[in-house]
Design a protein around this nucleic acid. Structure first.
Length: 730
DNA sequence: ATAGGGTTAG
């Protein structure tokens, strides 16, 4: 028995050996890491043939297995050119770019020359790392070895310079770096180098350099053209990019799906849908419209041009939409305000077994933020954590924004504090969060920290900090920030900045000043800016100025509802019932209908919506019963109804009854009777909270001992203990 | 061997 076992083992060994031998002769037959490792083990055992680390390295690197490749490589005392090529290609394919540069430097230090197979990979790594200095040295290296005339090297060089776009390239320093970084260096080589590189001007646009390289290439392929076109697009040279496409066609090359997916985003950016449709037509005629790369950029283009229905159609024609196509269609719907559709598409994406990516969540999160559905936001957050996407800075910023918008500013802050590096979007989301919730000093402090840590705030950051000032009524600070924005940072104010300053002036009662400020804007004020002032006129009962402002609004937007309502309200408040009636008549003549006010609340992951005097809710009986009890208690505590905001020309008693039926009160009372004592109540309302409800909710918060958070059309109110975070300023 | 699509704050 023992003898036969030995024999069997020997036969097995012979068989394995012969398999190993044949595998080495034809390494392309190895398709998995497991097979490669078994072969490696056989080689290490060193049967009858010599162990060749370089052949196993070639196999590992072809399978793109960097760890195994590194191990095999480390056993090669003096690597051959092909071994260097293997290990560097494998590192490049695995995205280990700094390793590529490190290995290349080591290779050069042994005196081994670069070759045309290797250099494109090194250039790719350099482009990925945006290393301008090394890039120039590599360029010098390519020239000194005569590799710059190689098609692939030339393409990779052009790509490198496109990626370095924004960098200051001082090409005259290359000589020094040639010898220092990559061991070039003899006099004749440097002569060639100088002659070649001096023709690339240091001060010119980076794309000019790319174009020179392009023109000097002895041969060009579609990739060469696509690279220059891509560089033009990346550097905002849209006209030039499109001219290149035409020229490419005129020399007899056909734009491929790379070319088209590079230029389609131009029309998204410019919002030029008719040109975009032309390109779409071209893709259909050439059978390219079913490719995912084309499809994704078309979906995005139509969405950015607000033709989201076209996006859906493009998606519908894709035979095999990949995760990116799904991301695009989700982004398309969310960007166009179709939040429920975005969420539905996400579920559909999961249902077809595609794995979501970090981008998926940064596209989708704003849907929860806009819908104020905290429970959905939390579900997505847990998905983010389980999927390991919580390290992505886009996702983190989107989460900060979502939690802030869904009313949970504390969690937003916790996520913000945990961010290892905060970009401008992260800072701005957090600042905007505080602006919406009330603690303006937190917003202002964060803005200062951001200036210290992140340098230059952009215009959105100023929108956020000005919003914080306006919500807190900080007139002087707002004006200071506005001045600093224009003077210190050279940012041209846009509509939102003007709106915020006009708002803060108006709220502070400086309505005439606000009028002057708006009149002096360097862009034409829109009806929305004037409407802000109109609102202030109503609060400060300045009917005269209100009429002047309303006239401007009606000229700009004759069919906007809000100014009609406000004017009617102003007239009612000053007892001008006839004017008020005329205004409402005018609205009827124009066919304008008031948007119904509604409020909603989430109870046990279900959303309950209420409109004013809503009797449709199954718990209506309980709600009125609880409200009556609450009302008595409120009266005892000193609550007096304020009917100033009630529009209708009716008796005082009826006005009070109207107030009591306001949708937010129904939602709050329903929240109180449906949750355990002490639970925070979160209600969302589609329009501004009225003065009386604001007072009433303060009383309610004290009586029931709960925090009540109401999100209205433009901010959050945290009611607690008879006070509100907005400081009665909203 | 070289190139490409979708993302967050208002």
């Amino acid at each position: 028995m023992a003898a036969s076992a030995v024999q069997a083992a020997q036969t097995a060994a012979v068989t394995t050996k012969s398999i190993a031998k044949s595998l080495l002769r034809d390494p392309s037959s190895i398709h998995s890491r497991c097979q490669a490792q078994q072969l490696h083990a056989q080689l290490l055992k060193g049967y009858s043939f010599p162990y060749t680390a370089s052949s196993i390295l070639a196999i590992y690197s072809r399978l793109c297995l960097p760890d195994d490749s590194f191990r095999a490589f480390s056993f090669i005392p003096s690597p051959s050119p092909s071994s260097w090529t293997s290990i560097i290609s494998c590192s490049a394919a695995a995205g280990l770019f700094s390793h590529v540069l490190f290995l290349f430097q080591r290779m050069r230090s042994t005196g081994a020359p670069p070759n045309h197979k290797l250099l494109p990979n090194v250039l790719k790594a350099c482009a990925a790392l945006r290393s301008s200095k090394l890039g120039e040295s590599l360029h010098a290296c390519a020239i000194s070895f005569g590799l710059d005339s190689d098609l692939f090297t030339g393409n990779a060089l052009m790509n490198l310079y496109c990626k370095l776009g924004g960098f200051q390239n001082d090409l005259n320093r290359s000589e020094e770096m040639l010898s220092r970084d990559f061991g070039g260096g003899c006099a004749s080589k440097i002569g060639i180098l100088e002659r070649n590189i001096s023709r690339l001007s240091a001060g010119a646009s980076p794309m000019d350099n790319v174009r020179k390289l392009f023109e000097e290439m002895p041969e060009r392929d579609v990739v060469s053209w696509n690279t220059v076109i891509g560089g033009d697009v990346e550097n905002g040279l849209y006209v030039e990019a499109l001219r290149m496409v035409m020229e490419m066609i005129s020399v007899g090359l056909r734009p491929d799906s790379f070319t088209l997916s590079t230029v389609i985003p131009i029309f998204a950016e410019l919002g030029n849908v008719s040109k975009g449709k032309e390109i779409h037509g071209y893709t259909i005629r050439n059978g390219l419209d079913r490719e995912v790369f084309i499809g994704s950029s078309l979906i995005d283009m139509y969405a950015k041009c607000t033709l989201v229905e076209y996006s859906y159609r493009v998606m519908g024609f894709l035979p095999n939409p990949d995760a990116v196509a799904w991301n695009s269609i989700i982004a398309a719907s969310v960007q166009n305000g179709q939040f429920d559709e975005g969420l539905r598409l996400f579920r559909e994406m999961l249902a077809v077994k595609l794995k979501p990516m970090a981008v998926t969540f940064s596209c989708l999160m704003p849907a929860c933020a806009h819908l104020t559905t905290l429970h959905l936001g939390k579900q997505l957050h847990s998905y983010v954590i389980r999927g390991g996407f919580d390290g992505n800075v886009f996702v983190q910023s989107a989460l900060v924004d979502m939690y802030a918008k869904c009313g949970n500013i504390c969690v937003a802050r916790r996520i913000f504090d945990a961010m290892p590096s905060v970009d401008m979007v992260g800072w701005t989301s957090m600042i905007m969060g505080y602006a919406l919730h009330g603690p303006a000093y937190e917003a202002l402090n964060l803005f200062r920290s951001m200036e210290m840590e992140n340098g230059k705030p952009n215009y959105v950051a100023f929108v956020a900090v000005l919003t914080a000032c306006s919500h807190a009524g900080l007139v002087d600070e707002a004006q200071k920030f506005f001045d600093r924005m224009t003077k210190d940072y050279g940012i041209t104010p846009c509509l939102e900045h003007y709106a915020a300053v006009a708002d803060v002036l108006g709220r502070a009662g400086k309505v005439e000043e606000a009028y002057d400020f708006i009149s002096k804007m360097h862009i034409k004020p829109t009806s929305s800016v004037w409407s802000i002032l109109l609102g202030a006129c109503r609060v400060y009962k300045n009917a005269e100025l209100a009429e002047k402002v309303a006239k401007k609004i009606f000229e700009l937007e004759p069919s906007e509802i809000a100014p009609h309502l406000i004017m009617s309200n102003i007239y009612s408040a000053s007892g001008k019932w006839k004017e008020a009636a005329d205004m409402r008549m005018l609205m009827r003549k124009k066919g304008l209908k008031k948007q119904p006010a509604c409020s909603w609340i989430e109870i046990k992951n279900k959303v309950h919506g209420f409109v004013a005097h809503d009797v449709s809710h199954p718990c209506y009986g309980n709600i009125t019963e609880a409200w009556e009890a609450l009302k008595d208690q409120m009266k005892r505590e000193g609550y007096v109804p304020n009917t100033e905001d009630v529009l209708h020309d009716v008796e005082e008693e009826q006005k009070i009854a109207n107030l009591c039926g306001h949708s937010e009160r129904l939602a709050i009372v329903f929240g109180i009777i449906s949750t355990p004592p002490g639970t925070t109540i979160r209600v969302t309302k589609n329009i501004r909270v009225c003065v009386d409800c604001h007072t009433a909710i303060k009383f309610i918060s004290k009586i029931v001992g709960r925090e009540i958070i109401v999100r209205d059309f433009n901010r959050f109110h945290h009611f607690k203990d008879n006070g509100c975070s907005c400081g009665d300023f909203w």
